[in-house]
Structure formats: structure tokens, C-alpha cells
């Protein structure tokens, strides 16, 4: 199924340590075009580190990370910036810019393309992105005036505004109530269908995994432990897999 040109992100034998703390010890991953891949793993197992390596926020000690066939550590700053416009990254903490309104937050990723766009076009893009997450009324609020779930959704709108081909979601539903969490999960599926994005979703939330995942990958002790569909893994008797689905 996964022929070479179908793979948008690939990591091979990815190793990353912080001093004595060996986080990733040789992680292999392939993300196919148009799929939602869920990565499961215990807190502190290095899931955030993994996707930060994919956008060049962290550099691996050894091993390969390539996105659209380009090796991230070998790119120049300019090439990296160019590539990053095709990747949306939803931060675990939402990472909204505190000093800017919601509108300015959404306009920020467009800055690189500003000279090509009129004010009306920018406004239209902002409103469309907000409509996608159902928060048009929040356009003039400051991030401090938003609830946790709203922040997540605004963060999502901000990453969607450039219509990225790849989305990396870092725990999109953590800290939300089950209803809002389900809304976000449905949104992730809707985004996949609407924009044909390929996504990696990091989560502990099994309901979210069940809704969004085409495949699930389990990260244990710095290695890929196993990969499969939700239905395959939920039936597994493996003592290391069972706790995730308990």
C-alpha cells in the first residue's frame, strides 16, 4: 500500500537524547498521503519531541527525518521556512500570541504572503478559518479572554489558515471535557476530508483515537512498538498494548 511517492513523512532510526535522558532510540515512522496516523505513548515518552523533529524545532542526534522527501536537518533556513508553510503544527499548549487579538493571531502566518493579498482577501481567509472551528464571534477577543477549549480551536484555526498539506496535532483534546473533545475529534476528521491533509495526531484520549485514526502507532521506550488499526489493537492481548485501551 505504501509506495514510495505516497509517503509524506518518514523517520528512520531516529535518535534524540537530552544529556543522559535518551528519549528516542531509533524510531521508525511512515505517514502516508491523506491518512490520519495516531501516535500513542505514555507521558514523557517523547511524542512531542518526535513531531518537533519533523518541523526542525529540534534536531535529531542521528537517523533520518524527511518531509516530502526532503531531509529536514539538511535544509537551509530559507528552504525550511518554505517547507514549514505546508505544515500545520498545533501545539500542546495552543501557543496563541498573548499580546495579539484572535484576528492578529490568525493573520500572523499570512505575513509571509501579505504582499500578494488585499485586506479583504486576508479578512476573508481569517473568517473562513474561524468558521471552520465555529468561533467567528471570538474574532476581536484577546487570548486571555478565551477558555481552554476555545484556545485549542483558535490554535487550530491559526494552523489551518495556510491550508497545510500536513497537520501535526499535539494532544488536541487533552484537558477538554468529553463533549468538546469529541467536537475537536470530528473537526480533525472534517479537515482531513475537506482539505485532504495527511496528519499525525498525538493523544492519550482513546475516544479521539477511535474517531480520527486510520492507523495507530504505539511508542514505548523510544521505539515503535507496534502499528495497526484501532480494531486490531483493541483486540490485542499483549500486556504492553492492553493498558492503552483499558
Amino acid at each position: 500500500m505504501s509506495t514510495e511517492e505516497n509517503i509524506v513523512i518518514r523517520t528512520e532510526k531516529l535518535v534524540k537524547s537530552f544529556g543522559e535522558n535518551h528519549v528516542l532510540k531509533g524510531f521508525d515512522l511512515e505517514l502516508n498521503k491523506g491518512e490520519n496516523l495516531v501516535v500513542l505513548g505514555k507521558s514523557g515518552s517523547g511524542k512531542s519531541v518526535l513531531i518537533k523533529c519533523m518541523v526542525g524545532l529540534l534536531y535529531p542526534d542521528s537517523g533520518l527525518v524527511s518531509v516530502f522527501g526532503k531531509e529536514i536537518p539538511k535544509l537551509t533556513q530559507l528552504e525550511l521556512d518554505e517547507l514549514r508553510t505546508k505544515i500545520g503544527f498545533l501545539f500542546q499548549s495552543s501557543a496563541l500570541y498573548d499580546s495579539m487579538t484572535v484576528r492578529e493571531n490568525l493573520e500572523f502566518p499570512l505575513r509571509r504572503h501579505w504582499m500578494h493579498k488585499t485586506k479583504d482577501e486576508v479578512n476573508e481567509l481569517v473568517m473562513e478559518a474561524l468558521k471552520n472551528v465555529g468561533l467567528e464571534r471570538a474574532v476581536d477577543l484577546m487570548p486571555s479572554e478565551l477558555s481552554g477549549g476555545m484556545r485549542k480551536r483558535i490554535g487550530l484555526a491559526r494552523t489551518l489558515i495556510l491550508k497545510p498539506e500536513i497537520m501535526l496535532y499535539d494532544e488536541p483534546t487533552t484537558g477538554l471535557d468529553p463533549i468538546t473533545g469529541r467536537e475537536i475529534s470530528n473537526l480533525i476528521v472534517a479537515i482531513q476530508e475537506k482539505y485532504h491533509t495527511s496528519s499525525i495526531i498525538i493523544t492519550h484520549d482513546m475516544e479521539c483515537a477511535k474517531i480520527v485514526a486510520n492507523r495507530i502507532m504505539i511508542l514505548i521506550d523510544g521505539f515503535k512498538y507496534t502499528v495497526g488499526t484501532y480494531d486490531e489493537l483493541v483486540k490485542s492481548d499483549d500486556p504492553k498494548i492492553k493498558p492503552f485501551f483499558a
Binding site: V55, L57, S93, R158
Partner: peptide
């Protein structure tokens, strides 16, 4: 304090991945 809190809450990382230096 401003840049420190932007660093801690990953706002600086967010700028970086959105292609702004």
C-alpha cells in the same frame, strides 16, 4: 518577562514554524 513567557508557552516556537523569523 515577555520573551521569557513567550518561550515557555511555545509562542516563539509557533512563530518559527509559521515561517516568521
Amino acid at each position: 518577562a515577555e520573551l521569557g513567557s513567550m518561550r515557555v508557552t511555545e509562542q516563539i516556537d509557533a512563530m518559527e514554524v509559521s515561517g516568521t523569523n
